[in-house]
């Protein structure tokens, strides 16, 4: 079974036999991989009806739950890793959710699109309109991405909350790394994958 490359980076950061919670688990690809290859105990939260059916078909523990309702029903430190891919920018309060992720989990793995990517900056400067791209395909009025941020913004939030960034990988929209991206991540990176802890 081959995983999408960003999910492959994430699975590398999850230890075998971990308890894993995936916020917005989609069709359960990552959890399925972690369950089968690393014997992880996994739960996924999802709101998309078809995705929930896909998870059930795969035998993934899937719970219908809106992330905007928080994680208050989960006990403190009940998971080793809490994962959230491409959803941070779409929730009502990313800062509150981040706190909650690190309350229920010992570590959090988060991916989000970088609003500081040069093409995004260029789009706004050149067109004078809210940027749209392959990674950000929505209009300003119908986008679910209501809290866009740059890598610098996210890292500042982590510093404010005294969170430790354990690892960070910055990739382009094919989820590939490069030397240039490593040199100027906030300018050249499109998607970041962070591993943070309190």
């Amino acid at each position: 079974m081959s995983l999408r490359s960003d999910l492959n980076i994430i699975q590398n950061w999850v230890a075998p036999l971990s308890q894993v919670l995936d916020l917005g688990c989609g069709q359960g690809e990552l959890l399925s991989f972690l369950k089968e290859n690393k014997d992880c105990k996994t739960y996924g939260l999802e709101i998309n009806e078809d995705s929930i059916v896909s998870c059930v078909e795969k035998g993934i523990n899937v719970i219908e739950h809106d992330l905007n309702d928080g994680l208050k029903h989960f006990n403190d430190a009940s998971f080793d890793t809490v994962i959230m891919t491409q959803a941070l920018q779409a929730v009502d309060r990313p800062d509150v959710l981040l706190d909650d992720m690190l309350r229920v989990g010992k570590e959090a793995i988060i991916t989000f699109p970088n609003f500081g990517y040069w093409r995004t900056r260029f789009f706004l400067m050149y067109n004078g309109r809210m940027p749209m791209s392959k990674t950000l395909p929505y209009n300003w009025f119908d986008t679910p991405n209501i809290h866009m941020c740059t890598f610098h913004d996210f890292e500042k939030l982590c510093r404010t909350k005294n969170l430790t960034i354990l690892e960070r990988t910055v990739v382009d929209n094919h989820h590939q790394e490069s030397l240039a991206i490593r040199l100027w991540p906030n300018l050249l990176g499109e998607i970041a994958i962070y591993r943070v802890t309190r």
Partner: peptide, 10 residues
């Protein structure tokens, strides 16, 4: 979930 059981919920 707290008891570590397998569960699907909708």
């Amino acid at each position: 979930i707290a008891a570590n059981k397998d569960v699907c919920y909708a």
